[in-house]
């Protein structure tokens, strides 16, 4: 008698599991958009061409309504002496590195969000406030964001910045690939403002070809590495340089997408809710048997 009812208990457990498994496909799709269109755009930054004029910094601030000094003030090169990072007041900054080959021509590197193809920030965001668009841009949505700053923990390039000084509606600030300007048919502000065409805007696939072409045609000028082509699964912004990228303060990263490990763990634990529901059934069975045994003992005594 007892064993049959125990069996039906387990059967009920299996049934629950099956039902839950049937339910999940609908919920599994809930989440931010994360499309990887073959037509996605990007920018190729040639650090061997950049002259460190910081016009791009100024143009970016203007385009995003951030406070800025007049363009003339940017002729002052002293800010370049210090290593800076993009923050809530500047979505892109230019850093300077000594050039051993030509001491009077230091190397300058523009830094901003890389618009990753498999963005860690998108995978991490608790409410799906960040998303990867068709055109390659990784965008942040103020209507969803709760300000938890997990995107900042996740980003391998340490890009998202937070308005720590605001008590109400602090924002996550990062390059938005000038989405509004592009929608109006304009180029990204930095690309447009660059006087020496250090920044090339276009479809990413084409940019990869252009980059390798450049390296092939001038092997003395470049190292054979297009940074961002493969890093963390590829990024929309890519870089060319005349030396190893870690010497220009780029992080050394593998080729597997940053969210990979975390997502497979997540999906492993939650594989169609089977593990949690099975655990529930198992515990239920243990509880039921323990009760039975307990009652039996009480009957005997």
């Amino acid at each position: 008698m007892k064993s049959t009812s125990r069996r039906s208990f387990l059967k009920a457990g299996t049934a629950i599991t099956a039902v839950a498994a049937g339910l999940t496909p609908a919920t599994a799709h809930a989440g931010p958009t994360n499309v990887l269109s073959p037509n996605r755009l990007g920018v190729l930054v040639d650090t061997t061409v950049c002259i460190g004029c910081r016009n791009c910094e100024w143009a970016c601030k203007r385009a995003h309504e951030l406070e800025t000094a007049p363009l003339e003030a940017y002729e002052d090169r002293t800010p370049l002496r210090e290593m800076r990072r993009p923050d809530e007041t500047a979505l892109t900054v230019v850093n300077q590195f000594a050039n051993p080959k030509a001491p009077d021509q230091p190397t300058t590197v523009k830094v901003q969000c890389m618009h990753c193809d498999h963005p860690a920030c998108v995978s991490a965001c608790i409410v799906g406030a960040i998303s990867k668009q068709d055109d390659g841009a990784v965008l942040w949505d103020t209507d969803k964001c709760i300000g938890c700053r997990y995107c900042m923990v996740a980003c391998p390039f340490q890009i998202p910045a937070f308005e720590y000084r605001k008590a109400i509606q602090p924002r996550i600030m990062k390059c938005d690939f000038c989405t509004d300007r592009r929608a109006a048919g304009m180029l990204p502000a930095c690309v447009e403002s660059c006087p020496v065409e250090a920044l090339t805007f276009g479809p990413r696939e084409e940019l990869v070809r252009v980059a390798h072409d450049k390296v092939r045609r001038a092997p003395d000028r470049y190292v054979e590495h297009v940074y961002g082509e493969r890093e963390v699964g590829g990024t929309s912004w890519m870089y060319l340089a005349d030396r190893k990228f870690e010497q220009l303060a780029f992080p050394t990263l593998g080729e597997s997408p940053a969210p990979g490990v975390s997502e497979s763990i997540q999906h492993g634990i939650f594989a169609y809710f089977v593990p949690p529901v099975s655990l529930y059934a198992l515990l239920g069975a243990v509880m039921w048997t323990a009760r039975q045994r307990h009652d039996d003992e009480e009957d005997q005594s």
Binding site: A30, I126, V127, I146, K166, Q266, F270
Partner: peptide, 27 residues
């Protein structure tokens, strides 16, 4: 503790209706 640490504490309920299944924090 979570509510005071997040920048927009008044949006603490957002995860209830805005889901991101791949986020460990969401879970």
């Amino acid at each position: 503790g979570v509510s005071i640490d997040i920048g927009r504490y008044y949006y603490i309920w957002h995860p209830l209706i805005m889901w991101n299944g791949s986020s460990a924090l969401f879970e």
